[in-house]
Nucleic acid binder design. Sequence first.
DNA 1: AAACTAGACAACCGCTCTTGC
DNA 2: CGCAAGAGCGGTTGTCTAGTT
Length: 207
Amino acid sequence: MMGRGIAEEGWRKGPWTSEEDKLLSEYVSVNGEGRWSSVSRFSGLSRSGKSCRLRWVNYLRPGLKRSQITPQEEGIIIELHALWGNKWSTIARYLPGRTDNEIKNYWRTHFKKKDKSSQKQDQRKAQILKPEMQQQYQQQLESGEMKMENTIDDHFKMNEAETFHNLEDQCWSAMSDQDVASWADFVVEDCYGLWGGLWNLDDHPQG
DNA sequence: AAACTAGACAACCGCTCTTGC
DNA sequence: CGCAAGAGCGGTTGTCTAGTT
């Protein structure tokens, strides 16, 4: 394939050199983070602001861990991915020293090829946990009321049946208020859509 | 030793969100 | 409110390297 050289706009692309890293680090130490579009003007770098920001955030920023992901961190990644899906930057907030890019790459490398049933289980968790519940988790985690390990799975187990019954209740109560035609629409859009999604997630063959 | 392959990670792209005017 | 610019995010691709044939 063609190597990455100079872009149409004149920006350099491709891997960063140690000299470029040095220039970027010096710029940030003087000017602070932000104003990335000005970096090339003031630092002498032929890199786009976007590229500079990415390099700083993912590689040069102080406090980044360069070590391997630990089993504990892996556990947190798994739990939070089950909770939030591909919200890499959100997940990264709970892993100090790790970047969203790092976590994303780690996930793709280590879990992308895991068996489908496990993936479906994760999807199921993410689907069952309602947005308000996810928000509640985040608040509890931030305030330190809740510990990360083992809590999400436990909470999921407790809420799975409840959530399912709530959905069932919603459907039944809605049916009593609606005529058959609109009920059919409701079933298709709300009940069947959700339940069908859940039912399809595990052992049932997909059509 | 050379060629090939697969895994890991760095970096780019396109899009969305945020902010200032 | 609408627009433009900057910043951030997630998906994807490119590059490097270690292992295998």
